[in-house]
Structures are given as structure tokens and as C-alpha cells.
């Protein structure tokens, strides 16, 4: 079982992340699974009839628009960061939260390290599967790098220039 950061603490996680090439027949019925987006797009209806929990994950070149009309089916949406420096997932997270109104767990997966966490949190992530070779307890500190932010984002609907007036 892996340990992830969720709700600002390290917790045990029992979701199974299914790789991209997973065939529909191989999806277990009762486990909680996070399926690749292409599997959802092909077998969405059947996946909702399973007993176990359902999540979906987007790779960094898979557009959040593709799942935007099905958000109520997902307890978890995971966004993959194939590299620390691939920032597409930041935009996807904001779109899911701010434009499409997704309220469930939004999890960062892949090359996820302490020094992105502050930005990810601002974009709407609330769960982080820290890369396996790093200690999530240590990484937690990254959530608190700054106490002031200039921009409006998923975590703060008002930019500082409006808050300054208050």
C-alpha cells in the first residue's frame, strides 16, 4: 500500500492506478481503481456499473475537456506529471476545479516532488502521490512555502489587489 499526501497529511492509500494499456476485461469489479482516460472514453458506461470505487487519470497530453461532462462518476481524478517541468497539469487542474466545477479528490501523480506542491495546491489539487523514492512526510513542507499569493486561483478566488482593498 502506498502512502500519499491528502488533506495536508500523509495517509495510506488503497486506490489502484491502472496503466494505460489496461484492457477492460482486466479491470477488477470490486477494487477502487483509477482508470486511464482512454478506457473511460471507450467503456464509460460499463465502468460505472462496477461495485468498486472509480477514478480516472489524465496524462499530460489528454485534455480535461474529454471527461468534463462525466465528473459526477469520479471519486478521484488523477493528473500525471511525466516530468517535474511539464506544467500542463497545472492548467488542467484549474479547468477541472474552476471551469467544470469538479469537487472530488484531485490527485497529482508522476514526477511529483516537494517543490511543486505549493503551486499544485493553488491550482486545485488536494492529493499528491509523491514519487516513490521520496518521503511524503518531508515533502509536506512544500505546501507551506508561501503565506502570501498575488493571483486568484483555485484556492483563492480573489487576487491580492482586491484583497488589499479590504
Amino acid at each position: 500500500m502506498q502512502r500519499i499526501i491528502k488533506g495536508r497529511q500523509v495517509v495510506n492509500d488503497n486506490w489502484h492506478l491502472l496503466p494505460k494499456e489496461t484492457a477492460f476485461e482486466d479491470v477488477p469489479n470490486s477494487d477502487s481503481v483509477i482508470v486511464p482516460a482512454n478506457l473511460w472514453l471507450e467503456h464509460g458506461h460499463a465502468l460505472t456499473l462496477r461495485d468498486g470505487g472509480l477514478g480516472v487519470w489524465l496524462d499530460s497530453d489528454e485534455e480535461p475537456e474529454s471527461i468534463a461532462d462525466a465528473l459526477e462518476h469520479f471519486q478521484v481524478i488523477a493528473i500525471n506529471f511525466p516530468a517535474f517541468t511539464d506544467g500542463r497539469g497545472f492548467s488542467y487542474a484549474r479547468l477541472l476545479r474552476e471551469r467544470f466545477g469538479y469537487k472530488g479528490e484531485l490527485r497529482a501523480i508522476g514526477d511529483v516532488l516537494q517543490d511543486q506542491l505549493f503551486f499544485m495546491q493553488r491550482c486545485g489539487f488536494d492529493a499528491y502521490a509523491i514519487r516513490a523514492d521520496r518521503d511524503p512526510e518531508t515533502a509536506l513542507a512544500g505546501l507551506d512555502d508561501f503565506t502570501v499569493t498575488y493571483q486568484a486561483a483555485a484556492d483563492q478566488p480573489q487576487p491580492l489587489f482586491r484583497r488589499r482593498l479590504a
Binding site: 517535474f84 517541468t85 506544467g87 497545472f90 503551486f119 491550482c123 498575488y150 493571483q151 487576487p159 489587489f161
Partner: peptide, 13 residues
């Protein structure tokens, strides 16, 4: 100010 630590644009292409 807007661009300083803009969370969405921290890792552009």
C-alpha cells in the same frame, strides 16, 4: 505581481 509565482505558469514549455 501577477506573474510572480503564478501557480499555473510555473513550468511553461
Amino acid at each position: 505581481q501577477w506573474s510572480t509565482f503564478h501557480p499555473e505558469f510555473a513550468h511553461l514549455p
